[in-house]
Amino acid sequence: MEEKLQQVKERFEEVQTAMSDPAVYDDPDRYTELTKEHAELKELVEDYDQWVDIKNQIEGNTELIEEGDDPEITEIAREEIEELKPRLEKLEEEIKYKLIPKDPDDSKNVIVEVRSGTGGDEAAIFAGDLFDMYRRYADKMGWKLNVMTLSESEKGGFKEIIFGLEGDEVYSKMKYESGVHRVQRVPETESQGRVHTSAATVAVLPEAEEVDVEVNTSDLRIDTFRASGAGGQHVNKTDSAIRITHEPSGVVVECQEERSQHQNKEKAMKMLRTKLYDAKVEEQRKERAAERKSQVSTGDRSAKIRTYNFPQSRLTDHRINLTLYNLEDIMKGDIDEVIEALRVEDNLEKLNAIMEQ
């Protein structure tokens, strides 16, 4: 750990030197980048300096005890060591977690895609239940939810629903939800009372800003069509719905939830940038996954991550073998305990990987 901290301190000093270079002032983007890095490193360097100071005090007192020239001084040295050791251990734990690199996407808003999977009508109903769970969770977190596009199922729920979440640190909380969610329960349509297994998929994408990905308008094909979902009197009367095709990649997005064509186009462009940004970082995710065999994956959306067993009121997250028996509360949006457990496990894995380097 000390070697890692020394590297951090050296980088901090490099950044300080670079910031004092007059040429940097002529490059506002570079100066902003250095200022941000300086702020991120400063707290860790201060902790490191404090750690070195406490460590030196302990070593100094240990030498006094070993010399043993004066019993009174020896006793004071022992008392100081007993006081300093817990402080050192606490500081070490704090430093370890600060060494974990911050996910640059954690502060971003997200676009969430929920789709029914295997299980027919019951899968669509479950997709609707998942959307309702996230809607309630967003309310508790004070986030803003915007539905972008949806396809309703005849028996209830959704074949697909795509929505945005805006607020503080949204991706840092929601990123662990990507994957296959499986439900085990007796469907309302089942007369024999048999438990069925169905599934829905969830994809959580960090929302891309214009600076994250460049979209050339000449690469886009924009089509308008009449909205077919909810939306009021304009439905099926005006061509307000928008479909955008990014021809180089083949990515297609559409939005029909707003009343005006302009608003739908704005939302569709946001979805398109996010899709392209997600594709851009997918290779990086694969590289990270290859380097670190993570249980708490945020990239593999085909993996079965969780089971919701209604007869037993049980939720099991298969990535960390977490089992809870408060499914009713969880479906009402009380998913903090699950997300926090996943976050802690993810940080432990990252920390172990850093310590092994």
Rank of each mutant, 00 (worst) to 15 (best):
337 E>N: 09
69 D>T: 12
94 E>M: 11
25 Y>L: 08
82 E>Y: 00
8 V>P: 00
109 N>D: 11
222 I>L: 04
336 D>P: 15
337 E>Y: 09
302 S>G: 13
126 F>W: 01
122 E>N: 04
199 A>Q: 04
267 K>I: 13
285 R>P: 15
64 L>T: 14
129 D>H: 07
78 R>D: 12
78 R>C: 05
75 E>D: 12
19 M>F: 04
305 I>S: 04
123 A>C: 03
20 S>E: 14
347 N>M: 11
201 T>Y: 05
73 I>Y: 06
24 V>K: 09
8 V>E: 15
345 E>P: 15
231 G>L: 11
43 E>D: 15
200 A>H: 09
342 L>A: 04
66 E>M: 05
340 E>F: 10
132 D>H: 14
289 A>P: 15
213 V>A: 01
248 P>Y: 00
219 D>C: 08
180 V>G: 11
337 E>S: 15
84 L>V: 02
262 H>F: 10
176 Y>N: 04
161 I>T: 05
288 R>L: 10
232 G>R: 03
235 V>N: 03
19 M>W: 01
278 D>R: 06
95 I>E: 08
127 A>Y: 12
136 R>N: 14
316 T>P: 02
41 L>Y: 00
102 K>H: 09
111 I>H: 07
193 G>H: 06
199 A>M: 03
10 E>R: 13
82 E>N: 15
52 V>T: 05
93 E>S: 13
240 S>G: 02
